[in-house]
Design a protein around this nucleic acid. Structure first.
Lengths: 151, 151
DNA sequence: TCTATTTAAGATAAACTTATCCGAAATAGA
DNA sequence: TCTATTTCGGATAAGTTTATCTTAAATAGA
């Protein structure tokens, strides 16, 4: 569906957003730990997100990654776009290089509906929306803790 | 979304179904050519599909692959299941190992809707339905021909 | 200016998916 | 029985994605 890299990216961005605040910056180690992803690989992904202006970074001591107010209202579609590209939302369900209303694969009509629903959902879900859920305490970015499982 | 192998599988099965008829068998070469897939790899996939009883095979001269009447009404979900498994329809959008209504990721509510729509679509689309479209002549299993493009 | 800290970038490795190859097994017909 | 044809199964290779490592560049503060 969506690549593992992209899932890491989504988790990282939402985490950054949920912690966003006055002059708050987080380093790779903190982010990777919190979203349960390998540190070095997370670093690479954060680099890409920064290059695409999804998040912002600052080098040096007291540096790190953060997300600015105006970046919070971007749709998570932009994250997918930065990491995986938009192919998932446009390509053929049966893998035809050429598939369109004019030259449809037999699954085209049904699949197009799914693709569009997906795109729509990723389009209208913003980073801020997901971050707020984390802040509410009822949603999570990593597996359940031992304590939680006991309930 | 769905693996390349699985897309080959879907195309191969639909093609077999569209050609199904009295004692008709097709060999790997014919199938691979028609669905525009590598021959040896297609062979592997057909093997798996046969093992899962999605299609039927017969060795030897005049042998090949075919699909029996009772196999035509299976949902294409079964093909996905045989090749990729059902994870796409059940796993978390952000890649959490554990994500459920009780321990949801922040995208859980939205994503669950998509997953379910997808599952539903794959569930109620049968092999026969897609094969009939091919037979109608208005749907295709490979890219457009030069002639077609000229229109 | 020097040092410590942090991201950036490039090279490399490991794991997984896709693809090929080859010999074995089955089977129809001569 | 022998031969030709076709799928089956295992081994191997090529390609892609995921992951790591190492050095460079930036920057804050002593």
């Amino acid at each position: 569906m969506i690549s593992k890299s992209c899932q890491y990216a989504l988790r990282a961005v939402v985490f950054l957003a949920s912690e966003a605040g006055d002059n708050i910056k987080l380093n790779v180690k903190q982010i990777a730990r919190e979203i349960d992803a390998p540190e070095a690989f997370t670093a690479k992904i954060l680099q890409v997100l920064n290059r695409h202006n999804i998040i912002t970074s600052l080098k040096g001591p007291y540096g790190g990654f953060f997300i600015e107010e105006h970046q919070l209202d971007a749709p998570i579609l932009n994250i997918v776009q930065s990491i995986d590209g938009l192919q998932i939302f446009t390509s053929c369900g049966l893998g035809l290089k050429q598939c369109s209303a004019k030259h449809p694969c037999p699954f085209h009509n049904e699949y197009e509906v799914l693709r569009n629903k997906m795109r729509e959902t990723f389009e209208k879900t913003t980073i801020r929306k997901l971050a707020r859920k984390i802040d509410s305490g009822a949603y999570f970015l990593a597996g359940a803790t031992r304590k939680e499982k006991m309930n």
